[in-house]
Structure formats: C-alpha cells, structure tokens
C-alpha cells in the first residue's frame, strides 16, 4: 500500500519534468498532439536551434552566468565577513545591528519591487549591470547562516593566531575561512540557486533586452510576442536550459540544500 502511494506520488512529482524534457525534443505538431508521450516522434533538435538562433538566449545565458557568479562570490565574502563580525568581534552597536538583520530578513520581497526601483532610479543606475547585481550582492539570510555557524566553532585556533600577532582580517582570511568549508559550501549553493533563479528583481532593475537574464528572457518569451498556444517545444527547451544548472548542483550537493527550517519558504 505504502509502496503504491510512493510510486504514484513519485510519478506526479517527476513526470512534469519528463514532459518538459521529452517535449523540448519534439516537433510542434507532435508536442501539440501527444503532450503526454515521453518519447519524441520524431526526435529533433530544432527547438534548441531556434532557441539559440531566434531568441536572445546567448545573451541571457551570458548575463545570467555573469550575475550569478558575481553575486555568489560577493555574498560568500560579504556575508561571511559580516557573520564573523557579528559572532566574534566586540564592537559598539553589534546587538542592534543583528536585530536589524533579523528584521530585514522578515521584510517580504514582493513589497520591495517598486521601492527598489525608486532607489535604483534615484542613484541613476537603473537599466545597468550594476542595478542587476548590486542589490543582490549581500543578503540578510546569508549573514544569519554564517553568524550561526561561526558561533558553533570554538574560538581557540583564532585566539592562538591572534596572540601570534596576526591582524583581524588576516586571522579571518587565513585561519577562519579555511575552517569554514561546510558553511561556505552551503552559502555558495544557496546563493547560486537564488541568483540563478531570481526573476522579479530583474523586472525592476533593467528593461533593455541586452541586459536580460535567463528567467527574465524566458518570461518575456512566454508572455510576449511569441506567446499563444504554439511553439511549446521552443519554450520548454528554453525552460530546460534554465533548469539544468540548478538541477546539476542539486544532484551533486543534495544534502546542503536542506536548509534550516526557520528560514525556508522563500518561494511564493
């Protein structure tokens, strides 16, 4: 009984991805007539050819890659620096700052769409790479994760290094960071996934198609001029390209995806 339930639900959760993959390799008429069939007949790469020839896919991919890499590196460095300071360094205003970080984590992202646009506009960086990257380059949740992690590590080694005369940044860079691999991996993966999938921020940060990231381009492709009932293999192929990188990382680093229950549920 339990076995049957498990199998039924596995099909429900996996089959949409099978449909996505299979139909991306079908011809338009085949996808329209046999959407359920897992086997393309005939199998063709024409959807992908059209994705790369007729849409902005090459630009979207390049932009997504750039934004994701810069944001991930930025978050890993800046969040762990701030997390370290909040966990270890005694400076005036620390408690208040930490309370603010917690409060910022609770601010719902959707209510910040227009406000973020206002700031980007006021700073005159709207519609630029800076607007795509800068607002995402540090995040409160990452600071929180790193602070929790540093507090769980005994301070002995750092103190020894400090007695040897190393400065704070030196201790952080060459003693603390190398010991923090597990937390850094988690933060890297969460940042990668978050920034690769990020969509609404791009809506309020840029409007020039040459600055679109993959989710933005894909959304434009579907709800824009190419919309309507047809061209599903093309759209599914493009969606597949957006899914693959995170899927690969998920397969490799599965256990790191399991987040602290107290800060999940970021997806609407």
């Amino acid at each position: 009984m339990r076995r049957i339930v498990l199998i039924v639900f596995s099909v429900v959760f996996i089959y949409p991805f099978v449909i996505q993959i299979a139909n991306a390799f079908k011809t338009d008429p085949d996808a329209a007539a046999n959407p359920l069939s897992p086997i393309p007949h005939p199998a063709t790469l024409s959807a992908f050819e059209r994705v790369f020839m007729d849409t902005g896919m090459p630009v979207w991919l390049a932009n997504s890659l750039l934004v994701t890499v810069v944001v991930t590196l930025g978050r890993v460095l800046l969040d762990s620096m701030a997390g370290y300071a909040l966990a270890r360094l005694r400076f005036r205003g620390r408690a208040g700052l930490f309370a603010t970080v917690i409060a910022v984590m609770a601010v719902p992202g959707v209510v910040l769409f227009i406000p973020k646009f206002l700031v980007l506009n006021q700073l005159q960086i709207y519609n630029s790479y800076l607007a795509l990257i800068l607002p995402l380059i540090a995040d409160a949740a990452g600071v929180f994760i790193m602070k929790q992690f540093f507090e769980s590590v005994p301070p002995g080694v750092e103190e020894a290094a400090r007695i040897d005369g190393a400065g704070t940044f030196r201790v952080f860079w060459s003693v603390v960071l190398p010991m923090s691999r597990p937390a850094l991996i988690t933060l890297t993966i969460l940042s990668f996934q978050g920034s690769w999938n990020e969509f609404p921020h791009t809506l309020v940060a840029v409007q020039d198609p040459s600055l679109f990231t993959l989710p933005r381009g894909l959304a434009d492709l579907v709800s824009g001029s190419l919309g309507g009932g047809t061209q599903f293999p093309l759209k599914l192929g493009a969606a597949l390209l957006a899914t693959i990188p995170v899927a690969l990382i998920f397969m490799v680093f599965q256990r790191h995806f399991i987040r602290d229950p107290n800060q999940g549920a970021e997806k609407g």
């Binding site: 759209k235 969606a239 998920f250």
Partner: peptide, 22 residues
C-alpha cells in the same frame, strides 16, 4: 523527488505547467 521542484526556477516551472494545462 518530492523536494526537487522547490529548488528549480519558478519561471521555468511555470512554463512547463502552462504547457501541461494548455
């Protein structure tokens, strides 16, 4: 299997469901 959908791109998965519900 059950967790995988929640790590994927919300835009990409919406495209897939648009097709499934066409």
């Amino acid at each position: 299997a059950f967790y995988f959908p929640s790590v994927t791109s919300s835009v990409a998965i919406s495209v897939v469901f648009l097709f499934i519900f066409s």
